[in-house]
Write a protein that binds this DNA or RNA. Structure first.
Length: 358
DNA sequence: AACTCGGGGCT
DNA sequence: AGCCCAGAGTT
């Protein structure tokens, strides 16, 4: 099945009528969104990066703010990374922001600030994968390039009754080659966006509104009453739990200890309050651990909160403990900061929840 | 191919 | 609690 030519899946499918119905619906019903104001490739690019694994409603305010702060590729290229992460604070998947800046710097240096309009150069930019590449080429440049995201796989798996596991990386390629045959050459932008808009508004995961669907006459799953059985998706394994004592460490002058996380891995380069890994450290030896890692003498005061924070693949259980600190801070990544200084630093949401105990 | 990487809104 | 979201990079 995997290597079966995709034209077999399109046998008896009225491609032309499907295209027209989809595009006509999109032109009439599309939402008004900030990144649809024009076709500026930089704006399209920023929006597509923000929209990766992130809902439209969540992205809108971030997009507005980001474009006010960094209106052009040059503005973003010359900005401080901390400033970029601050604009991304709370949006998640922070490597998107760092990769976007890396890529924009490449565009400014190598392409005179112009976003490439071909698969090779565009796809080689950091953070621009097959989906984002296709989205930019079709939406900003009107080129017939597939942009297969979760919406497109769900919608198309129903319309064409495709029962491949969409969780498998190889499955995306099946949909890409199908889209290459289906896509409108006259308006690839409306076609690609139409599929995604349909997935967002009509052909939703749990209970699709088939009676409102502009292409239901083309939908094999609907005709067989199997629309809720598709797409097929294997489930992922559950998260590991990690337990931390999170310290609100205050010195005599009322400043707090904060530290920057490493430049790779989870929440790379973001800031946080000190976290004692309680799987490795005995409760009685927390003071020793802090002395070892920060050079500080501390007195534990009160437990003021318990925070459970769920990531994609891990769960943090954070016990928030206030403490007083004295001595010389010895750490390459930690520093003392007054309350007002903290506002300049990017914190993950888990540690924003700690802020209120300051 | 499997794993890592956030956060929020639904069910 | 699990699923999903306009996915990409790393291993």
């Amino acid at each position: 099945m995997k290597n079966e030519p995709t034209y077999n899946m399109l046998e008896g499918f009225d491609i032309e009528a499907f295209r027209n119905d989809l595009i006509e619906w999109f032109r009439a019903e599309q939402r008004i969104l900030p990144w649809r104001e024009n076709q500026d490739p930089y704006r399209v690019w920023v929006s597509e990066i923000m929209l990766q694994q992130t809902r439209v409603d969540t992205v809108i305010p971030y997009f507005q703010n980001f474009l006010e702060k960094f209106p052009t590729p040059q503005a973003l290229a010359y900005a401080e990374e901390q400033e970029v992460l601050k604009a991304w604070e709370g949006l998640g998947y922070y490597s998107r922001a760092r990769n976007l800046q890396t890529a924009v710097r490449e565009v400014v240096e190598s392409y005179d600030g112009k976003v490439p309009n071909n698969e090779k150069e565009l796809g080689s930019l950091k953070g621009v994968g097959p989906y984002t590449r296709g989205a930019i080429l079709s939406i900003a440049y009107d080129l017939p390039s597939p942009a297969v995201d979760g919406n497109v796989m769900r919608v198309l798996s129903r319309i064409l009754m495709i029962e491949e596991d969409i969780a498998k990386p190889a499955t995306r390629k099946i949909f890409e080659s199908l889209i290459r045959e289906l896509i409108s050459k006259e308006d690839p932008s409306a076609f690609n966006q139409g599929l995604m808009e349909l997935g967002a508004l009509v052909c939703t995961p749990k209970s699709p509104s088939c009676l409102l669907c502009p292409v239901r006459s083309h939908c094999r799953a609907f005709h067989q009453g199997k629309e809720t059985e598709l797409p097929i998706k294997s489930s992922k394994k559950k998260q590991k739990r990690l337990s931390y004592m999170t310290l609100v460490l205050k010195d005599q002058e009322g400043r707090y200890v904060v530290e920057q996380r490493p430049d790779t891995g989870l929440l790379a380069n973001l800031w946080q309050f000190p976290m004692v890994p309680m799987q490795q450290v005995d409760r009685e030896k927390v003071q020793d651990w802090v002395k070892d890692h920060y050079g500080l003498d501390i007195d534990l005061l009160n437990t003021v909160d318990h925070i459970k924070h769920t990531f994609s693949h891990v769960i943090w259980d954070m016990e928030v403990v206030t403490a007083s600190a004295s001595g010389e801070l010895q750490s390459k990544v930690a520093r003392f900061a007054a309350k007002e200084e903290l506002e300049e630093l990017p914190f993950p949401v888990s540690h924003q929840k700690v802020h209120k105990h300051l």
